[in-house]
C-alpha cells in the first residue's frame, strides 16, 4: 500500500473515527458532569434568550474592550475566515466534501484561493510570533497551544506544496497533505481546537447565567 493509498484509505477512515469519537467523548463527558442546581429567584426568566444572544454578542468585542483587544480580535477573524474559504471553496476540497456529503457548491478560482491561503498562513505566523513574544501569551501558553498551531499550519503548508508541486512527487505531497489533515482531525478532540465545538455551549452558558441575574454578558 502506497503512502497515498494509506492516507486516502485507512488513514482517513481512522482519522474520521477518532475525530467523531473524541469529540463525542469530550463533549458528552463535559456536559454530563453534575449541574449546579440554581435555587435563587431569577431576576429575569428569559435565560434561553440571553444565552442565545451571548452566542452572537461574544462574537464582537464590546465597545469598551475594543481598543485593547482589536489585534487579537481581527487577526482571529482574518485567520478563521481565510481558513474556511480555503477549506470550503478550493475546488478539489469541494470534491472531497462531495464524496462525503454528496452535495457540492461552486468553488473559487485558484488565484483567489492562493491569495487567501497565503493570508491564512501569514496570519498564523503572525499569531505564533505574537504568542512567542507577547509576555502574557508566552506565560499562559502550553504544549497544546503550540501543537494546535502546528497541526493547523501543516495542512496549509502541505496544501501549497501539493498545489505547486514543490518538494516532492505529487502523490507524496498529496499524501502528506491528506495525512496532515488527518493529524489535525486526530488532535482536534484532545487539544484546544475543541473550542470550535464548545464555544457555542460555553457562550450560551455565560449569557444564560448572567442573564438570570439581569446582566447582559
Amino acid at each position: 500500500m502506497s503512502l497515498l493509498d494509506f492516507a486516502r484509505g485507512p488513514g482517513l477512515h481512522w482519522a474520521f473515527i477518532i475525530f467523531v469519537f473524541g469529540i463525542c467523548w469530550r463533549f458528552v463527558g463535559t456536559l454530563l458532569i453534575a449541574r449546579r442546581i440554581k435555587l435563587s429567584t431569577p431576576r429575569r426568566t428569559d435565560n434561553w434568550l440571553m444565552g442565545l444572544k451571548a452566542i452572537e454578542t461574544r462574537s464582537w468585542p464590546v465597545e469598551e474592550f475594543h481598543r485593547v483587544i482589536r489585534f487579537q480580535h481581527y487577526s482571529g477573524y482574518i485567520w478563521h475566515i481565510s481558513f474556511f474559504i480555503v477549506l470550503f471553496f478550493f475546488q478539489p476540497h469541494i470534491l472531497f466534501f462531495k464524496s462525503i456529503l454528496g452535495i457540492s457548491w461552486p468553488g473559487l478560482p485558484n488565484d483567489v484561493i492562493l491569495v487567501v491561503g497565503a493570508i491564512a498562513v501569514a496570519t498564523l505566523v503572525a499569531l505564533l510570533g505574537r504568542r512567542l513574544s507577547h509576555p502574557v501569551l508566552r506565560k499562559i501558553s502550553n504544549v497544546d497551544d503550540y501543537i494546535s498551531w502546528l497541526v493547523t499550519t501543516l495542512p496549509l503548508i502541505t496544501g501549497f506544496m501539493a498545489f505547486a508541486h514543490v518538494g516532492g512527487r505529487y502523490e507524496t505531497l498529496l499524501a502528506l497533505h491528506i495525512l496532515s489533515v488527518e493529524l489535525l482531525m486526530v488532535w482536534f478532540p484532545f487539544g484546544k481546537l475543541i473550542h470550535a465545538v464548545l464555544v457555542v455551549p460555553s457562550r450560551f452558558q455565560i449569557g444564560a447565567s448572567f442573564g438570570r441575574r439581569g446582566v447582559r454578558a
Binding site: T30, I33, A34, I69, H134, V136, L198
Partner: peptide, 26 residues
C-alpha cells in the same frame, strides 16, 4: 466543579484577552 465550569475549563484557547480586562494586569 460543576458542568458549566467544566465547559469553561475545556474551552479556553489561551488567547490572553482576559489580561486586558484585569486592572492588575492593565
Amino acid at each position: 466543579v460543576h458542568s458549566a465550569m467544566a465547559m469553561d475549563l475545556e474551552t479556553c484557547i489561551h488567547c490572553g484577552m482576559c489580561a486586558e480586562a484585569c486592572h492588575f494586569y492593565a
